[in-house]
Design a protein around this nucleic acid. Structure first.
Lengths: 327, 327
DNA sequence: CTGAAAGCGCTTACAG
DNA sequence: CTGAAAGCGCTTACAG
């Protein structure tokens, strides 16, 4: 039967050493006699002692954890980003937790509860208006890096979404047909404007070529809605040219085209955004973002900040590229 | 210019009260004179004071956070589960962080670093061999709930996957053709055996009807591989009956069928597992799991444990159901 | 309702 | 290499 509240003192007493020595063993300090270390380790094992994380963090001043905040958690995109972030952090003994904001309550928690937001050593925040999200308290000892949103207070890592939209526009404008946009309507006013930028870039390019967009559909990140909109478009228009501001919408659109027996690059043209695996499988033309790379850079900057780097925040902007496939 | 290391003492001094009073204000204690409260709040505001989370957690003994661990993070399934978990926890002032295990390093961190795993008030662990994952240390003050894996040490919430597999088998076996299984090969020995159970249930049902499975394909959770396997099957076999142990595989399989001009329920039959949104859109027959419900129950049990409930762990088993669509 | 003080369980100079 | 002690920044009985 094990005792509940084992502390470092219990270990020290049983091992016949001071708590300092136990602590050094726990933290792999080189300044411990190998024999002492072995002995202490054995006692720890016997007792089944587990250090209290909160105490460790309070006295050491750090947790070894960083938090990544996403507006929602839809899969591949986010996992890739995380892998990029890990790439850098893991070497330094850090790891990252995820806090997805798929509900109003979660937004509220982040906005109002500095307590748990600042319980880790750093924050990477994706596709959110960071400045407003954190307006109720200013993280001072907790560095923040903003992804996909250009912050005025923190370092940012961005993709040039306007340019990406233009690439899509250049592609689409080179064909004949009626032009449509299917884009994401943010579910919170705190979501960043990446989709708007893509759409604006697209429209800019289209108009430069003297053409115009017939209709813009703004919907939540919901396959079914995209599906229904595509049905409407394909049924009404003989030949449609569609820009899906994210691949997630491109998937169901292509599906509808298939159901109706429409052929890509003949009956319709479609350009997505993101270059997810499924767009590769479905052979969808899309705009590629360097997702993993973005994560990596965000991790790098955050790490520098954690280590004390204190220059003025700046933004890094990456370029997207067009990938032409069969739509 | 704000000072860096503001503490509760600075606030107390400036407000002319004791730290206890500041603490009570911070924690919304009812035992504070409204005027005192207002004043302290103003000072906190002026100073821009933010309480140190680690200190709070050390003295209060809890963090208000629970951690959910997934083998990977592929999207809809996990978000639904999380929403179910939240449903219960939010009412009690808790919120949940996610720790996805998409890399070996992450497995290692969980297995070896009790420190950060136990830094929250509770653990919900999905589709992993919890007993082995946590074998290196026994969480004592941190309750654990296992999802999709029947643990011998902790409460479990499960779906009867074997039965689900049988439902799929009953469906598939009622048609003529060559039978295939496409299932997930765990990338870590610590992943749970949900897929095996589904497959075993399927085979059991098939064999009871005097039929047999031609081939079993085990692949990672990778659309491209499923895509290629489907190609092979459809090209070789005139009429195939396929059980995809997860809808994620069913999507690309249907895609290949489309490309080859094959018609569901005529040229091939396909039954997936999970009933994700995309299987609805693609009209794929599948086995429905009560995902949200599972999350909700896991959250409920965890909460009870956090509050001190200490009976012997037990397992709750939910039933899946067959949803017949156009494949 | 409030303040002074003990205590949460570690880490880390400090002196040896 | 090691121990005793101060300190991390809160919370929470306790006495008033």
């Amino acid at each position: 039967m094990r005792k509940k509240g084992l502390t470092i003192k219990d270990v020290a007493k049983k091992a016949g050493v001071g708590v300092g020595t136990v602590s050094r063993v726990l933290n792999n300090s080189p300044h411990v006699n190998p024999k002492t270390r072995m002995h202490v380790l054995k006692v720890i094992e016997e007792l089944g002692y587990i250090p209290n994380p909160h105490a460790r963090r309070l006295s050491s001043g750090h947790s070894g954890i960083i938090t990544t905040i996403f507006p929602q958690m839809v899969g591949e995109f986010h996992q890739l980003l995380l892998m990029g972030i890990d790439r850098v952090l893991e070497n330094e003994g850090y790891t990252s937790f995820v806090y997805p904001l798929y509900s109003d309550n979660r937004y509220r928690f982040v906005k109002e509860s500095s307590d748990f937001v600042l319980g880790t050593d750093g924050l990477i925040i994706d596709a959110l208006n960071v400045d407003r999200l954190l307006s109720q308290y200013i993280p001072r000892n907790t560095p923040v890096v903003s992804l996909e949103y250009e912050s005025s207070n923190y370092d940012s890592v961005l993709v040039d979404n306007f340019y990406g939209g233009m690439l899509a526009g250049d592609y689409i404008a080179s064909f004949e047909g009626e032009i449509f946009i299917v884009t994401h309507r943010p579910e919170s006013e705190l979501e960043s404007t990446v989709f708007d930028e893509r759409v604006n870039g697209f429209i800019e390019s289209i108009e430069r070529k003297g053409k115009k967009v017939s209709e813009i559909f703004e919907i939540p990140l919901d396959w079914l809605q995209a599906f229904n909109i595509a049905k409407g478009i394909f049924r009404r228009v003989k030949r449609s040219l569609i820009f899906a501001a994210t691949d997630y919408f491109a998937f169901p659109i292509v599906e509808v085209a298939r159901l109706l027996g429409l052929e890509g690059k003949k009956d319709f043209y479609l350009c997505g955004f993101d270059n997810l695996t499924l767009s590769n499988i479905l052979n969808i033309t899309t705009i590629k973002q360097p997702i993993y790379e973005m994560g990596r850079m965000a991790g790098e900057i955050l790490l520098k900040r954690i280590k004390g780097y204190s220059r003025k925040p700046r933004a890094i902007v990456l370029k997207p590229e067009l990938i032409v496939r069969k739509t």
